[in-house]
Nucleic acid binder design. Sequence first.
DNA 1: GCTTTAAGTTAGACGGATCTAATTAGATGC
DNA 2: GCATCTAATTAGATCCGTCTAACTTAAAGC
Lengths: 263, 263
Amino acid sequence: MRIGMISESLEDYLEIIYNLIDEGNIARVKDIAARKNVSMSSVTPALRRLAKEGLIKYTLRSDVELTGEGKKLAARIVDRHEFVKHFLVSLMKVPEAIAERDACIFEHYMSPETFRRLVVFFEFVDTCGMDIRDRFEQYRRNMESTGASDPCTSPDCRNTEMGSRHRRRWGQVKTLLMLKPGEKGRIARIQAPGAIRQRLIDMGVLPNVEIEMKRAAPLGDPIEIKLRGYHLSLRKEEAESIIIFPAQIEIREPDSGSGEYYG
Amino acid sequence: MRIGMISESLEDYLEIIYNLIDEGNIARVKDIAARKNVSMSSVTPALRRLAKEGLIKYTLRSDVELTGEGKKLAARIVDRHEFVKHFLVSLMKVPEAIAERDACIFEHYMSPETFRRLVVFFEFVDTCGMDIRDRFEQYRRNMESTGASDPCTSPDCRNTEMGSRHRRRWGQVKTLLMLKPGEKGRIARIQAPGAIRQRLIDMGVLPNVEIEMKRAAPLGDPIEIKLRGYHLSLRKEEAESIIIFPAQIEIREPDSGSGEYYG
DNA sequence: GCTTTAAGTTAGACGGATCTAATTAGATGC
DNA sequence: GCATCTAATTAGATCCGTCTAACTTAAAGC
Ligand SMILES: [Mn+2]
Ligand SMILES: [Mn+2]
Ligand SMILES: [Mn+2]
Ligand SMILES: [Mn+2]
């Protein structure tokens, strides 16, 4: 349990009581039980614990009231719940039901520092004038339709073998266009749809292949690269759609070399 | 506990075992206990539970090994831990130690959907060519130095009274510049430093004040607004730095009207 | 090979959070 | 005013995760 605080479970009870009252109902054991999906006989001891912490006023068989302290804590939890949910739904486009679940857990554990920064970031996104929401949505859709099936790039990739190169590295991501002449990288994904994507694949631009930036023409177009020993010329948009794995972190040799890997 | 999965505590044991082995050590009870900050006698039953789940190979008094299943689950947790931490540190600028703590909790609870989207968003930030990292950092710094003390805007504001207008609403945030002629809003913060900030404050542009956009000149500058009954003319940059509370959500009347509020 | 010591386990306890089954208190009906 | 019904509580159990204290094992010293 979080030191100096009440447990996640108790916080949820408090949140439910707050919401019930806020909605104009009275907070009865039965309704609390229903919302938390527990039996009534679990609610009674929970109320006792909350009362012991001075967060509610509880007398046997009468409806529950929040104390000043209780209101404050409950409001704080609800506040976080609503923010996180809104963040996930409106910006990250997480499905509502899932965002609801995630929010109702993060609300208990997120540090004030992280919370504050997410709030500021959220505000930044809307006020910086860069249209981040729409641009991201476009990127995401594109990614879902093109890159979702790439092995080891999907977040649910599990072919992580210990000591091998199979764990992902989370350094800053780059596009091929960002590499300096002479700089090398390993391809993570191609973030481009349809014809461009196909053309690149035909030229051998595939995940896990090593690629080297040779030079860019004065205006940044075309770009000369080296790949599997060949030299190729790419247009700027093409280079921009090739995502490179972050390479800052040293990769250790796998105990038993197994050919294909990434990292 | 998360349905069909092991508890947070067990996942942490698994993660610790993984890390110990990954670092070239052997996973001994003593070291596991030290990392998890529990007594050795707490580790033994935990190992038994992990063994029962088929995640480790455990024989009394000999060092612990991960099974294939165990490695996969552990790597998944470590993967998430590292991503979340990196996200918080490198983008949100959460202090390392705090990000570490947050990450080591979210790793257990974040839904795959949320995780996947955060990963994509992280990639988007670096590859969209909009320089989001630097711009956000500038915004954040600015906010910390100017707006951090605004009551009720700071995430740790607790003067949330139930049934009153004191809970924050998390709709999309706007700047004054984004309001259409005739549209009203309530000021949340001034996101501007130094002289500009002072000038606005002197004119009565303060948090919680209602403000109305009257009209903008053809090129967006100057802008005419109404505030406390006065008409004022602002420059574009000034209007851009005035953050307006989201107003989409209906606010209910407080039971006992108390003058100052926001929402 | 005996002794010492460190590592690991077991025994026994506790608090939190849940359950089912049994009981009690109040409100409702008539 | 008593019978009935529903809401709430209590009793008693279980599992998890932790603790301290006592014990056992095995390695290290000599
Ligand atoms: Mn919750
Ligand atoms: Mn919640
Ligand atoms: Mn953890
Ligand atoms: Mn962790």
